[in-house]
Amino acid sequence: MNMCTLIHYYKTAIEHAIERNQRRQAFEQKLGTESSGERRNRELALFGKNESQFLRLRRTRLSLDDFNTVKVIGKGAFGEVRLVQKKDSGKIYAMKTLLKSEMYKKDQLAHVKAERDVLADANSPWVVSLYYSFQDPLYLYLIMEFLPGGDLMTMLIKWQIFTEDVTRFYIAECVLAIEAIHKLGFIHRDIKPDNILIDMRGHIKLSDFGLSTGFHKTHDSNYYRKLLEQDGDNKCKLGENLED
């Protein structure tokens, strides 16, 4: 482990510990006004379980060799989305593959970081779940929940016109989903039928946060421009910041 990686490792570990404490404090403050007694204990236990699961996933080191590609299900400006199967568990995921050279060239590092952060932070029924993220010299990989219902654009093309009841249902769910994103401190900035996915029960989840922002320094393109202008010791942060 070189010095840059070592410094980044301990700096990130401290930041993660601070974030966990802040999440715990914010959650306890919320419970203080909304619940008490047995319900409070259940909510705290569930919160602790979710935090433990998140930490286990964060410690898991994966590579492309851990997955089998079933088929390509989409293509974008920086890569593609594949339907993949994890070799050890057999579980199915959607793997978003982002070409890092194109991200650098088109000054999209801040947007990719924001997308990764909102997916990782959102423990919400309205947001596609992110299970793993890792990278190699060429690509950044986001392993996400696969939703078999397709997207709202495909439904519109198939049915052409929705009934009033169906329209009200999906508009109402979109409003709740956007509200959930705002409460997390993010703005999606690319809401359209293509980015509204449908789960197996017919409910929506938002996806494709490539244009989102969370008003954090690492979501600002100037942050990465400054790193690129500095010496080589700082440049190694670029790839590590995107995966963390």
Rank of each mutant, 00 (worst) to 15 (best):
L119M: 12
S133Y: 01
A122K: 06
R116L: 00
R116C: 00
G76P: 04
L99G: 03
P148W: 00
R116S: 03
D121Y: 08
P193H: 11
I178L: 15
L109I: 15
V81S: 03
I198D: 02
H182Q: 11
S101V: 11
M153Y: 12
L130V: 07
L99F: 08
S89R: 01
G202D: 05
P193G: 03
D136A: 12
E179F: 04
L156E: 04
L197N: 01
P148T: 05
D194P: 04
L184M: 13
V175I: 15
C174H: 01
A177V: 05
D107Y: 02
K91L: 14
K105L: 13
F186H: 00
T97L: 11
K113C: 12
I196C: 06
I157Q: 06
G79P: 10
K106W: 07
L176V: 07
H111D: 03
L156T: 03
M95C: 13
D190G: 09
N123H: 06
Q108H: 15
M144N: 04
L138I: 09
Y139A: 09
I143T: 07
V81F: 04
L119P: 11
L109A: 12
L119Q: 01
A180Q: 03
T69N: 10
K105M: 12
F162G: 08
R61I: 14
K106V: 02
Q160D: 11
L62G: 07
R189T: 08
V175F: 08
Y141W: 07
T154F: 06
I73H: 01
D199T: 00
K91E: 12
F146E: 00
I73W: 00
I161M: 11
E179A: 14
P193T: 08
K105C: 10
L156Y: 07
G149H: 03
I92C: 02
E115T: 05
D190P: 09
L184W: 04
N68M: 10
K106E: 11
R116E: 00
